[in-house]
Simulated assay, not measured.
Amino acid sequence: MINSKVINPEVLDKWQHDVILTLCQLEMYFLPSFFDVIVHLVSHIVREIKMCGPPSLRNMYQFERYMGYLKGYVRNRSRLEGRIVKGYAAKEVIEFGTNYLRDVRNVGIPQSLHKGRLGGVGTLGRKEELMHPNDLYEAHFTVLQDMTSIAPYIYKHQSLLKNENSHMDNIWLAKKHNQTFSHWLKEKVRSTRLNVDKQVEELGFVLICVVKYEGYDINGYTFYTRQQDQKSTVQNSRVTLIALTIENNTKDSY
Rank of each mutant, 00 (worst) to 15 (best):
K5H: 11
G119Q: 10
F34I: 02
L70H: 06
N134P: 01
G116L: 03
G215H: 10
Y153I: 02
S253G: 00
T148K: 12
S112F: 07
G82C: 06
E202H: 03
D229H: 07
N99K: 08
E128R: 09
Y216R: 01
G108R: 06
K188V: 04
C24P: 01
D135L: 13
R65I: 07
N236E: 08
H17F: 11
T225H: 09
T240Q: 08
V206H: 08
C24E: 15
L41K: 10
G97H: 06
N99S: 02
K251H: 15
I20L: 14
S159Y: 06
A151D: 10
Y221I: 03
Q145H: 07
W172M: 11
K186E: 12
V46E: 08
W172A: 12
V196P: 00
L207A: 12
V121Q: 05
N249V: 06
T98G: 00
V196R: 05
Y61I: 10
V234P: 00
R47Q: 11
S149C: 12
A89E: 10
I94T: 01
L144R: 03
E128I: 09
V206W: 11
N170S: 14
K5W: 14
Q227L: 13
T245M: 06
I49C: 01
M168N: 06
N106T: 08
T123W: 11
L203E: 06
R102L: 12
I20G: 01
L130M: 10
T240V: 11
K156F: 06
A89W: 07
M131T: 09
I38W: 14
R79A: 09
L160W: 07
K162S: 14
Y221Q: 05
V200Q: 05
K5G: 03
V210G: 03
K115L: 15
D36R: 03
L203P: 00
A139H: 11
D18V: 04
I2D: 09
E138F: 08
H183P: 00
N236C: 07
R79M: 08
A139E: 15
V206K: 06
K212E: 07
S112W: 07
L144E: 05
L136T: 02
R65H: 15
V37H: 10
P9L: 06
F34A: 05
L130F: 10
L21D: 15
K127T: 13
Q227R: 13
Q25R: 15
V93R: 02
I242S: 04
C209N: 10
V19L: 10
D36H: 05
L241W: 11
K156W: 08
Y61M: 13
E92G: 00
G108V: 04
N3T: 04
N134G: 01
V39A: 10
F181Q: 04
I84H: 02
N195S: 11
N106R: 14
T192V: 04
